[in-house]
């Protein structure tokens, strides 16, 4: 018998620190499957900032750089500009990318930096124990919105793909999810496309991945999956928000120019 499914080579064979049912692990795997299939592990440099995935340098077998909270896009810019022939990706959470790192996020996109950003949106700060994130849904209870997030007090969630698709430098922005097998396959395809964009020098690519956080949502893993499907996907519709290659542009008057 032949093995038809196993751990990708570029995913180091160690147990992870992620909580049971946390879908970070799925995104790690499909990212590494893409790296294996493109045969680029030796030419890839990953940047992981503070967040649950800060220790991903123990899981990804390519060269890794640990970055300050919110600053991965800047670190990645420094890497890519001086090593243009290498593949560079960041793997960031929602607090990192859409709160403290918003300026870095907007500018890495508007510069059209030729890197890939894997953005894990689980509507919460996981590592620090479940506080409100910029993507926390209205009404969602967290450590810092104990009565449910009220937009009047704590503002509205940030829709990152929609926001970044407005920027000319963004070549590709797609929101995917890892709640089901078909969605996981689509997410992998999106990640592959992002890396192919980088290879072809198309500019900035971001894949926003709706992901679960069973522990801090206070839900069993399968119930967390259900919450993602019932509450997150409606608020954060999946799909391609920009793809310069396929002519997908945001609904603004002037299109891209």
């Amino acid at each position: 018998m032949a093995v038809v499914f196993e751990r990708p080579k570029s995913l180091i064979d160690v147990p992870t620190h992620y909580c049971p049912g946390c879908t970070h692990g799925i995104v790690h795997r499909i990212l590494c499957e893409v790296i294996d299939e493109m045969g680029i592990e030796g030419d890839t440099i990953g940047v992981c900032p503070v967040g649950c995935s800060v220790m991903a340098y123990d899981y990804f077998n390519c060269d890794m750089i640990e970055a300050a909270h919110g600053r991965a896009p800047a670190v990645a810019t420094g890497v890519k500009r001086t090593n243009p022939d290498k593949f560079v990706f960041t793997y960031q959470g929602d607090g990192d990318l859409a709160a403290i790192g918003t300026a870095e996020t907007v500018h890495v996109a508007t510069r059209g930096e030729n890197i890939v950003v894997i953005f894990i949106n689980n509507t919460i700060y996981g590592m620090t124990g479940g506080q409100m994130a910029p993507t926390t849904l209205p009404g969602q209870v967290t450590q810092t919105t104990p009565f449910g997030r009220s937009p009047e007090l704590a503002g509205y969630p940030v829709k990152v793909c929609e926001m970044l698709s407005q920027l000319t430098g963004t070549a590709y922005a797609e929101r995917v999810a890892v709640d089901s097998v078909p969605h996981i396959k689509a997410a992998k395809k999106a990640i592959r496309k992002a890396f192919e964009n980088q290879k072809a020098g198309k500019g900035f690519s971001i894949v926003e991945v709706l992901s679960t956080c069973p522990t801090n949502w206070g839900l069993a893993p399968l119930d967390a999956i259900k919450r993602l499907q019932d509450e997150m996907i409606p608020y954060y519709p999946l799909g391609v928000y920009k793809d310069v290659e396929e002519g997908v542009f945001p609904k603004t008057e002037g299109g891209n120019e």
Binding site: A2, P15, T23, G25, V181
Partner: peptide, 15 residues
């Protein structure tokens, strides 16, 4: 499909 959903690469499938 079980292995695809597994966050920990804890399932190997052979055929």
């Amino acid at each position: 499909m079980c292995a695809t959903m597994c966050p920990d690469c804890a399932i190997v499938i052979e055929k």
